[in-house]
C-alpha cells in the first residue's frame, strides 16, 4: 500500500525509491494508519486545530509539501496559539520541556488524553519530516 510519504514525494510504483520502501511494508502501513488515527480519530482537539498544528510543525521543519497538505484543512481557534507554542518547544528545543508546559496546556482546557494526542501529533510530523528529507537525499545521491 502507498502512504502519505509516497504521495507527497510523488514516488512512482516500480521506481527505485518505491522498491526500496517496499522492503519495509509495515512502515508504510503504520505510517498511514498513524495519519488516520491522529487526524481523523475522535479527540478533544478539533480537526482544524490538529491540521493547523501539523502545518506549523511542517513549516518549522521547512517541509513545504507536508505543510501545504495540512494547510487545506487547518483552521484557527482561540487556544491555537497555546498549542503552537507547545509545538515550537517540542520541535526546536525539546530539552526545554518542563511540567509547567503540560500545565499550560491543561489550563487551556486540554484533558490528559488531548495532551497525549497533541504530543503524538507533533512527534509524528517530526518523524515524517526526517523520513521525507532522508528519502529525498537517497533519490538525489
Amino acid at each position: 500500500m502507498r502512504d502519505v510519504i509516497d504521495e507527497l514525494m510523488g514516488i512512482e510504483p516500480g521506481s527505485r525509491l518505491d522498491e526500496l520502501r517496499a522492503l519495509r511494508p509495515e512502515v508504510r502501513r503504520s505510517t498511514q494508519a498513524s495519519e488516520v488515527a491522529i487526524f481523523e480519530g475522535e479527540s478533544g482537539l478539533t480537526k482544524t486545530e490538529r491540521h493547523a498544528v501539523a502545518q506549523y510543525v511542517a513549516e518549522l521543519n521547512a517541509e513545504e509539501a507536508l505543510a501545504a497538505h495540512h494547510a487545506r484543512a487547518a483552521g484557527e481557534t482561540p487556544r491555537l496559539p497555546v498549542l503552537l507554542a507547545h509545538a515550537t518547544m517540542l520541535t526546536e528545543e525539546p530539552d526545554q520541556a518542563t511540567p509547567a508546559a503540560i500545565q499550560a496546556l491543561m489550563a487551556a482546557g486540554l484533558a490528559p488524553r488531548d495532551v497525549v494526542m497533541l504530543s503524538q501529533l507533533i512527534a509524528h510530523v517530526n518523524y515524517e519530516a526526517r523520513l521525507l528529507a532522508g528519502l529525498r537525499l537517497l533519490e538525489e545521491a
Partner: peptide, 20 residues
C-alpha cells in the same frame, strides 16, 4: 533507509519521552 527510519523514529520518541 533503515538508519534514516531510526533517526526519524527517534525524532518522535525523544520528543514524547522528554516532554511528557
Amino acid at each position: 533507509l533503515d538508519i534514516t527510519l531510526s533517526v526519524a523514529m527517534f525524532a518522535n520518541a525523544n520528543r514524547l519521552m522528554q516532554t511528557l
